[in-house]
Each structure stands twice: as structure tokens, then as C-alpha cells.
Design a protein around this nucleic acid. Sequence first.
DNA 1: CAAGGTTATATTGTATACTATTTATCGACG
DNA 2: CGTCGATAAATAGTATACAATATAACCTTG
Lengths: 228, 228
Amino acid sequence: MPLNPINAPDLSTAPSTSEVIVKHLREAIIAGKLDEGEPIRQDDIAQMFKVSKIPVREALKRLEAEGLVMFQRYKGAVVTKISEPELAQMFEVRVLLEVKAVRLALPHMTEATFAQAERICQEFMDESNVGRWAELNWEFHACLYEPAQRPFLISLIRSIHDKVERYLRLQMALSDGKERADREHRAIIEACREGDADKVADMVERHLTGVCQTLYEHLPDNRYTHHG
Amino acid sequence: MPLNPINAPDLSTAPSTSEVIVKHLREAIIAGKLDEGEPIRQDDIAQMFKVSKIPVREALKRLEAEGLVMFQRYKGAVVTKISEPELAQMFEVRVLLEVKAVRLALPHMTEATFAQAERICQEFMDESNVGRWAELNWEFHACLYEPAQRPFLISLIRSIHDKVERYLRLQMALSDGKERADREHRAIIEACREGDADKVADMVERHLTGVCQTLYEHLPDNRYTHHG
DNA sequence: CAAGGTTATATTGTATACTATTTATCGACG
DNA sequence: CGTCGATAAATAGTATACAATATAACCTTG
């Protein structure tokens, strides 16, 4: 018997209510629509989706494991607040992982890869919506790493992305982050075209550490002391 | 007001039922007490802990995010089966992260670090319980990385450890894995004492890739085709 | 007796109901 | 007037109950 001759979708993985909620909440947190430190009211979320709070809690438990929210017993879940040292550590790991990814991907890149990356860059520059920027930013990076054929590595990078993205948004909006990102992205594409692995690795590293640096400079100093 | 003058514990983080269950289930999965592919019956777990299945489900949702179980709608959660390519990718990332960790840690290691590492090695060799081996193996590695003062990096390494540990158990028990691990561990300690970062990095990398290699050789070939 | 349908059972997923705990409100007391 | 304590409201956490679906047992039919 030939396998899956009609390319049937996997019905057993149809999303449950809690999975739908996970997706929405994750996007909301990443987009910075929920202030960090502010408690997430289970009943409110439940009413938004017209469901009970059971699936809401299951969704929050998942997001807790992803590091996006934190539970405090009898006080509920709050959006995780990332300290500056933690941010620095995350970028340190990102550099490590993303440099590895792009190195592995480089030999398998084709003109289609570059074209796709440039298309994303263009869309990025034409876009005015801040929320979409971050999304396209990830798409760009993912596009460069995908040829590596390392789903585990990429999912790990993505999970870190998800945690820091709402801070990046800040940085991109305030400084000339967008133009700088575009410049650096296009330069990386060119380096990839040349096929010089060391150069590409160096550029990706500088790009990421640069972003981290700007982010640091634009972080409000009082994020530890402000109340309410 | 002086901060926490009596070093008070944080009572707001007292574990809820679901968190207790998470911990136990996680340990059971890591220890290989639950066969991969076999469904985890929510009511069974609930009865074991004499609770309802609500906290059990929340626990499973957490473990799903950690990659230890997978949900199939209306069929429940099963222990995640890791394919050989996935295992290889995980080790690839482990090498990357652990080499980085030990490099960062090296300059901050003291004689206390080495003594502690040696103590763990000794306990490892004196131990006959397979389950305890893996635990001590992690303790050894964590001991070497802890001086790096990179909690995020170490937690990432740990999460990968947790996913592959039940396969390592297999490998350690079947081959001369235990003796070899001890030999290599002690050699790594010596290299750390010498303070030669490149040498240490190289040894850690060889150690990990070696483990992965042996693991690969001892994996049953039929793990994709065997039914029931 | 084989193949396919049909009912029964088991299991998951979610809503409702209840309990435990925290937080806000308010009054007694110094 | 402020502080302490009691009470009330709000919210989290969990048990029970029920609905949706899958699996197994059985039955029908050729």
C-alpha cells in the first residue's frame, strides 16, 4: 500500500481550545500587549474566548514552561520580567546558536534563499506596523537558517527570540533600529552570496551584539523600581 | 529598610499540586520508567496522587512544552519518541553550549570546584544504581559549568539533558560507558586544573561526541518499526 | 466465517461548582 | 489620625460532572 496517496492531513493533531489560547496569548505577550509584571486574570481570558478557565490555565502552564509567564500561588500568572543580566545571557546564547545555524546553512543556500531573504527585507522596509517588523525580522533570520536542516536548533533559537522580542520592539521603534537592521540584513545576504563562512559568521555576531547593545542603551533604567 | 534581614523563604512560590506532579512525572520520564509511545492515562496518575485529573492535565501541558510528552487530541499524552536525527541535533547543540559553558567557567574555577567534581566522580564510581548514575553525571557537568555564572545557559543545557537522559541510561548500562565516562571526566578535571581552555574545550567536545557515538551504536535499529 | 456496521465502554477535554487564599473594605481602639 | 483586626469581595486552585471522541466488543449479513 502506498503511503498517504492523497496527502491526508493529520487529524489527530487538531488544535484543542487550550492550544488556540496558547497561540493567542503567546502572540499577545510577544507583541508586548500584556505589560510585564501585570497579573493575567484567568476569568478575563476565559470570557474573551467564551470558555471556562480550565483551558486557560492549561495554556498558561504551557507558557510558564516556555518562560513567558510565571505563576505565583494564589496570585496567578504574570508576564515574565527579564532582568538585564538575563537579557545579556540570552543574547550570548543567541549569538552562539545563530552563528552555528548560519554556518551550517551557508553551504546549502541557493539563489532562491537569497531572493527570499531580499523579499523579506523589502517587505520589512515597506512595512510601517511595528508589530509586523519583529515578525519579518524573525522570518529573515529563519530564512537564513532553514537551509541548515536543523529543526531542533532553529526551534531553540526561536524560543529565545520569543522571549526577547518584546524588548526588541522597543529598541526598533525608538532608535534608527529599523534602518540599521535593514542595512545589516542586506549586508549579510551579500556575504552569504560570496560564500565566505567566516565573514558571514562575523557579521551575524556583530549584528546580534549590536542589537543587544542598542537594546541595553534604550532600556529604561527604572524598570526595577517603577511601581504600578 | 534592610532587605530580607532574616533570609526569609519565598512562601508565595510554595508548590501547588500540579507542580508536585510535574516534578514526579518529569523524573519518571527521565528515568525511563514510562515507555515511549505508551499513553499516559490521566485518571491513573490522578489516582496515584489521590487527586482529580485537572492538576494532572496541567502538569502534562507543562511537560509538553518541555518536549517530554506529546498530546494527541482525544488520545492523550505519550512520552515523546526522539528520532535518531533529532538525537544527533540535540548532541550537536549540547556540544556547542557545553563547550561555551566550560570555557566561561574555567577562569572562575577554584580548588573547591575540582574537589567537588572529584567527589562526584568518586560517588559515581561507587554507585551501582543506574538511575543514580545519570543524576551524578549531570551533577558533574553542572559542577563544571556553575562557575560561569550563566544560569540561563545552564538551564538550557539542562533541558536538553533531560530529554536525552533516558537514552544515555541505556548506553551507560550496556557498554563500558560508566568506566569510560569516569576516565574522561577525571581527565577533564585535570585539564581544567592546568587551565588550558582550548584543551578543555576539545576534551569536552570529544567526550560528548563520543557519548553520542556510543549511544548511536547501541540504539536498537528497529525502534521505528516495532509495534506494541 | 469474514467484513462491515453498531452498540457499549473507556478516555479525553471542558464546564460548573466548590474550597483555599489573597486582597480590599471598614470599623474598633489606642 | 493611624493601626490593628475582622469581615467581605475577588481570585486562584481543585473536585465533580458532563460532553466529545476514540476504542473495543459484539452483532449482522452475505
